[in-house]
Amino acid sequence: MHTSIVRHRRLRRTAGIRNLVRETRLHVHDLIMPIFVAHGDDVKTEISSMPGVYNLSLDRLDEEIAEIVSLGIQAVLLFGIPASKDSVGTGAYAEDGIVQQATRKIKKLAPDLVVIADTCLCEFTDHGHCGVVHEGDCGAVVDNDESLALLVRTAVSQARAGADIIAPSNMMDGFVGAIRQGLDEAGFEDIPIMSYAVKYSSAYYGPFREAAQSAPKFGDRKTYQMDAANAREALREAETDVGEGADMLMVKPGLAYLDIVRLLKERYDLPLVVYNVSAEYAMVKAAAMQGWIDERAIVLETLTGMKRAGADLIITYHAKDAVRWMNGQ
């Protein structure tokens, strides 16, 4: 008896057929563009390890925001580089802090653009850690609970400046619950929290630390960010944040942690965000500049893979280029 060959290729035969049966689609509304805002005038300094990404002063935000809006990107993630730093990150929660000023300006320039404020102290502390540091029996340690109070002040000041979403990235225990309570008590019950719920202590952050000038001056962040070898721990972290009132969950970094993205997608029904981080961007850019890869094809395949793994939203430095490529430019 003749056995027919199962011909899977029938549904791959033409571009039209492939489009009809495509399971995962990347859309402009899936993408969030990070922005680095710095003090000064007429500053547009390219980050050496991240070609095409810049530190921008407030007076240069207009052109960046106009470009983002023209492409149809609906959200930005704000990072700030202050004029000065101190041991307790005062610039993070100052009413005239760089992120607060940038938020107010962006909301005037583009009221409908969603402004997401990164809520951490590392860019504002002179030691580069994400909280208050004290000397302990085993050397300098980050004081979890004292740091929470300052993170709450930061979140409230960002919401007061007009941020649409608070995105705490500090990985202190109890940070979502503390920030939720602080926002509610300040009258910001409607401001959602996009929690960096699963943030690994990763080598993939190197170029970001150049951009944000936030590298630790001593030690590392392994005592509060997650061990790259752990998966079950990610579920515990996410479960805690869900219980404390997170509105969205994030996995950071992206490429090496897509198994974690799938774990969270299958377990929780909150919107899931993936951060396509700085080294992932830098490696693609470096290889493309050498002519070793097709940048457009690699980027779109990577972002589609993140969506396929379960991401609802992707924070990516490729956002503007990705939209142009999706539009056939």
Results as ranks from 00 to 15, higher is better:
residue 284 V to N: 07
residue 214 S to P: 03
residue 219 G to V: 13
residue 139 G to W: 09
residue 163 A to C: 11
residue 228 A to R: 08
residue 162 G to T: 00
residue 130 C to D: 11
residue 192 P to I: 08
residue 64 E to A: 14
residue 92 A to K: 03
residue 124 F to S: 04
residue 24 T to C: 07
residue 192 P to F: 06
residue 7 R to A: 12
residue 197 A to P: 00
residue 68 I to D: 15
residue 328 G to I: 09
residue 125 T to I: 01
residue 274 V to D: 02
residue 201 S to Y: 08
residue 326 M to L: 12
residue 124 F to N: 03
residue 122 C to N: 01
residue 182 G to I: 02
residue 48 S to V: 11
residue 184 D to I: 06
residue 124 F to W: 03
residue 293 I to C: 15
residue 146 E to H: 05
residue 279 A to N: 05
residue 254 G to A: 11
residue 79 F to Y: 11
residue 177 G to R: 00
residue 85 K to N: 09
residue 199 K to A: 00
residue 278 S to C: 00
residue 167 A to N: 03
residue 262 R to H: 11
residue 33 M to F: 09
residue 268 Y to K: 06
residue 250 M to A: 01
residue 242 V to C: 07
residue 160 R to H: 12
residue 277 V to K: 03
residue 106 I to C: 02
residue 200 Y to D: 01
residue 117 A to M: 13
residue 290 Q to A: 14
residue 53 V to R: 04
residue 36 F to M: 10
residue 230 N to F: 07
residue 33 M to I: 13
residue 42 D to I: 00
residue 309 A to C: 01
residue 142 V to A: 10
residue 96 D to Q: 07
residue 35 I to D: 15
residue 115 V to Y: 09
residue 171 M to T: 06
residue 100 Q to T: 03
residue 256 A to V: 01
residue 32 I to S: 12
residue 83 A to N: 07
residue 323 V to D: 12
residue 49 S to P: 00
residue 249 L to M: 03
residue 328 G to L: 10
residue 54 Y to V: 03
residue 297 A to V: 10
residue 307 K to H: 01
residue 297 A to H: 14
residue 69 V to H: 08
residue 264 L to E: 09
residue 52 G to P: 10
residue 255 L to R: 04
residue 196 Y to P: 02
residue 97 G to E: 09
residue 262 R to P: 00
residue 76 V to L: 08
residue 205 Y to S: 05
residue 52 G to L: 14
residue 212 A to Y: 14
residue 85 K to S: 07
residue 118 D to K: 14
